[in-house]
């Protein structure tokens, strides 16, 4: 799969030719560095490992320093492997840029870590409706989950029962976002719709196989 690593800059909205206002996410995509090329005969499959974002030299472990030295690049903060990368012929240490992979109008998937929401109740976390009444005998039950199972049989709560708990901070892939525009001179990618994560968090943009 062809793709690139980027950083979410933020969201905005723009008007298209038809006069519709479309919500867009601005992503600072690349330039990435090829830090490893995996080959059929040595690794069993073909893939490119790309690096993006600068890491501090002192926070990089010795083994990783060697890894980056081999590719002839400074330490990178984020490394991602793209299997079957066939957009452009690349070898170790090469630069991968947005415009080489994406064109305007392409469909892409965006992978990111969603914003952490902390410990959340069942209404926000799973979309339960709550009780829906404030009166009619209700007391402190407005956002309660209701029954979580039967009684003496099975005498336990089934695994996977949707309950309150930690929400967000998960790896999520959003599919079929459209590339509105590529800005090669600023390494920016403009996609329609929302992308998971905080502003400034790393996102992986994968190109859909057409």
């Amino acid at each position: 799969m062809n793709g690139i690593i980027g950083k979410k800059v933020g969201m905005t909205s723009l008007f298209d030719e038809a006069g519709r206002n479309i919500a867009c996410t601005v992503i600072e995509a690349g330039p990435c560095v090829v830090t490893q090329v995996k080959q059929e005969d040595t690794d069993g499959y073909y893939a490119l490992q790309l690096g993006f974002g600068d890491a501090k030299e002192k926070n990089t472990t010795q083994p990783m320093k060697g890894h980056f030295k081999k590719a002839g690049t400074s330490p990178k903060a984020k490394l991602v492997e793209f299997k079957g990368f066939d957009a452009v012929e690349k070898s170790l240490g090469d630069e991968v840029r947005v415009e080489e992979i994406f064109n305007d109008g392409d469909l892409v998937n965006a992978v990111g870590i969603t914003k952490g929401k902390g410990f959340q109740g069942v209404v926000k976390r799973h979309g339960f409706k709550g009780v829906g009444d404030r009166t009619h005998g209700q007391h402190n039950r407005e956002r309660a989950p209701g029954s979580i199972g039967a009684s003496s049989y099975p005498s336990r709560v089934f695994k996977g029962m949707r309950m309150a708990g930690r929400m967000g901070n998960q790896r999520v892939k959003v599919c079929n976002l459209k590339v509105v525009k590529v800005f090669p001179d600023k390494n920016l990618l403009l996609v329609s719709g929302a992308v998971p994560g905080h502003n400034g968090s790393y996102v992986i943009i994968e190109k859909k196989n057409s």
Partner: peptide, 14 residues
């Protein structure tokens, strides 16, 4: 923010 302003400069009507 600079990146967003840049996008607007390129694509928005004045």
């Amino acid at each position: 923010m600079d990146a967003i302003n840049y996008v607007h400069e390129q694509l928005s009507l004045k």
